[in-house]
Nucleic acid binder design. Structure first.
Length: 114
DNA sequence: CCATTGACTCGGA
DNA sequence: GTCCGAGCCAATG
C-alpha cells in the first residue's frame, strides 16, 4: 500500500466532527496534489473494509458528490447530525466547516469575510 | 500485464 | 452561472 493511501485514510480518520474536507485537499495533505480521485477510490475500497468517516468528505465546492441517492442522504444526514449545516442541494459551507489540519491557531481569518 | 473505473479538479467556452 | 473536456494516479478485474 502506498503512503498516499495510508495518509489519505489517516487524514480522513483525523477529520473532527462538525468539519469536512475536500478530496483535493486530502490528496494534497496526503502528498499528492492530483490524488483527489484516488481519495475517492480509497473511500470505496477502504470504507468497505474499514469504517471510515467518508461522510466528512465532500468535493472542492463543499458539495456532496456521491452518486447514489441513499448515500447522498446518508452523508447529508450524518453531517447534519454532527452539526454541519448542509444545504438542501447537499452543499456545505466550506468557509465554516472546512477542516484545515495545517492551520495554526489563527482563527481571525478564514470565516471573517462574508 | 492491460484495460477500466473512480465519492475529483481545473480550465476554457 | 452552466456545460464540456482533459488530466491524473492508484486500485481492481
Amino acid at each position: 500500500m502506498h503512503q498516499f493511501t495510508e495518509k489519505t485514510i489517516k487524514l480522513i480518520q483525523g477529520i473532527p466532527e462538525g468539519k469536512v474536507m475536500s478530496y483535493g485537499q486530502i490528496a494534497r495533505y496526503a502528498g499528492n496534489v492530483r490524488g483527489a480521485r484516488q481519495v475517492a477510490r480509497v473511500l470505496h475500497s477502504m470504507s468497505r473494509k474499514h469504517r471510515l468517516p467518508w461522510h466528512r468528505v465532500v468535493n472542492a465546492r463543499g458539495e456532496i458528490s456521491v452518486k447514489g441517492e441513499e448515500l447522498f442522504q446518508t452523508q447529508k444526514l450524518s453531517l447534519e447530525l454532527e452539526g454541519v449545516e448542509v444545504d438542501s442541494g447537499g452543499t456545505v459551507n466550506l468557509d465554516k466547516f472546512l477542516y484545515e489540519p495545517e492551520v495554526d491557531g489563527d482563527g481571525s481569518a478564514g470565516q471573517s469575510s462574508v
